[in-house]
Design a protein around this nucleic acid. Structure first.
Length: 146
DNA sequence: GCCAACGTTGGC
DNA sequence: GCCAACGTTGGC
């Protein structure tokens, strides 16, 4: 089982859209590093769902329900080449009882090496199991450390 | 709204 | 292939 984090702007596609819809085709990724991460996702992997821009915070957990396939929203490639872009399908599995703000993640030394902090512009990234556990614990109401 | 980080584009 | 210019993302 692998762990990931995906970013979304809540004004464009937030957690409430996601839960209302029940399943999301995670399309529109146009960055190769993010694409590589999407392509590496496996059925059942757990994904932290992060709201960027306004009130940046992890708000819940999603599960990978379908592995990568061609992004139907990608523009056609010249010469009929297959598109390099792909999507996965996600379903919401767990809503945090309290969102975990970026500031809290930044303040925890154990999480200082997360891609979320080190590479703030990447929109799909791997998360280590202990990082996932820490954030999940906070999100489900464990006492805060600081 | 500003600015830093960083990916992409295009001139050479 | 290098690098400057530019666009986009996202934190504050």
């Amino acid at each position: 089982m692998n762990y990931w984090l995906v970013k979304t702007e809540p004004e464009k596609y937030g957690w409430s859209h996601f839960t209302a819809q029940g399943r999301a085709v995670w399309d529109g990724v146009r960055n190769y590093q993010a694409r590589n991460n999407l392509a590496a996702m496996q059925l059942g992997d757990q994904v932290l769902f992060y709201h960027s821009v306004s009130n940046p915070a992890v708000v819940g957990v999603a599960t990978v329900m379908r592995e990568a396939y061609e992004d139907p929203t990608a523009p056609a490639e010249p010469n009929g080449k297959p598109t390099p872009w792909c999507v996965v399908e996600l379903e919401p599995t767990l809503v945090f009882t309290q969102p975990v703000p970026l500031a809290q993640i930044k303040a925890e030394p154990m999480l200082a090496n997360m891609g979320l902090i080190k590479q703030s512009r990447l929109s799909v990234m791997p998360v280590k199991p202990d990082e996932f556990d820490q954030i999940l614990g906070w999100g489900m109401g464990e006492a805060r450390k600081g």
